[in-house]
């Protein structure tokens, strides 16, 4: 159990760092979405299914969609 959680936290950290360094903003948004998704899994492991559901639907789906719309209106690549 502790092994699974530490692995998830490690992947989450890597995804967060990757979101910071990506030049392609679409990849950065997907990496940020992955952070939210893993956070929701961790919430589930911490016995908070209510919060996990809210995090998965809002953090992973809605916020990602808003970012994708914003990228489509502006530029995809960071200069």
């Amino acid at each position: 159990m502790i092994l699974v959680v530490s692995l998830l936290v490690l992947v989450m950290l890597l995804a967060a760092i990757a979101a910071f360094f990506f030049k392609d903003l679409m990849s950065a948004v997907i990496a940020a979405c992955m952070v939210s998704l893993i956070a929701s899994i961790l919430f589930y492991f911490l016995q908070a299914p209510d919060v996990a559901m809210a995090e998965a639907s809002i953090g992973a789906a809605l916020v990602t969609a808003v970012f994708i719309v914003a990228i489509r209106r502006t530029e995809r690549y960071e200069k």
Binding site: P49, D50, M53, A54, S57, L62, A65
Partner: peptide, 19 residues
């Protein structure tokens, strides 16, 4: 577990998929 806010967000994500 879950409720109005979570269910509403899931319903909205279905509309986003269509959009």
């Amino acid at each position: 577990p879950g409720g109005g806010f979570q269910g509403g967000a899931i319903v909205a994500s279905a509309f986003i998929l269509v959009y």
